[in-house]
Design a protein around this nucleic acid. Sequence first.
DNA 1: CAGGCGTGGTA
DNA 2: TTACCAAGCCT
Length: 349
Amino acid sequence: MPRTSFSSISADLESWFRRHARDLPWRRLRTPWTALLSEALLQQTQVARITERFPEFLRRFPTPRAMARAGEAAVLEAWRGLGYYRRARSLHAAAVCIVERHGGEVPSDPQALRALPGVGRYTAGAVASLAFGQREPIVDGNVTRVLARLSDRREPVADTAGQSWCWQQATHLVQAAKNPGVTNEALMELGATICTPRSPACGRCPLSAQCGSRKAGSQAQVPVPRAPPVQRPLVLHALVEIRAGRVALQRKSDGLWQGLLVPPCSQASPTATAAEVTRSMPGMRAGRRLAEVDFVTTHRRIRFIVRAARLPASGDFTWVPLGRLRHRAVPAAALRVIEAARQAWPGSC
DNA sequence: CAGGCGTGGTA
DNA sequence: TTACCAAGCCT
């Protein structure tokens, strides 16, 4: 792609974006902190999921200092149901860093941004360009797709070589831009609303005249999809005790759903007996089987085998009222496990 | 660097 | 119903 094309593309992107930008909550008030907050929330998550939740985050954590003071548990609680919960723990740690190392202000230097927990190349570039107007490139899933189609790239874009090519293209584009932040945001917006993975709306695309895949009619083949991840099976035995309208939960210390509240779980064979299930669970007694719940993540196919349980009074449990589950740091999978248990609970109709 | 890390929407 | 995948990062 010749240099003149990049300046023409960025100009078309910017003018299109000024007319067609969606009204998103984090665009109303654009500060460095709202940029960092929204980008952390949006990692691997669709815009529509975050638009509803962003106002609550901004209300609860209006500044890095407020988030640092609120504590990690409060951030995890606000993050309920959004997945990839390490983002929540990283964001809180980043807020602490910002308070301790940067006087409570989000840094503008890409290097300093990169040093924050949970901030990689994309997020650092996004905050630097969108919030500070710096000439930093960004590459995410949307940008990757738009760039691949513009050049009608028939080779993979997901592997190392492909991503390197994308960053190079994005760098050229932002170098040619009049307003780097606007060009970057427009590039993402185009990928999200026009240049979609399937059936892109080329008829409404401001770049259609300059698009290689449009010219070749290869939009459906570009970019080449990457091989789907293998989904490994995992069996978890969950022990649920409901007493006086409350369910016993534990804060998970590692692995899947680390830091979140879940019923006591152990990994064992699908045919394990109650005694075998509780062998590594001191003081806990497993009762009758109540239900099975299947849950799919990106890399796993999880089967929960749910048993009623008798948990020791001395255990370190958090007893959460059933009606409050959706306001606590309980992952969606655990909500489904608890709901299945409640349906099958002795005495339930 | 390949694999781990969630969830829900859409076709 | 399955398949795909979304404003990625970390180890």
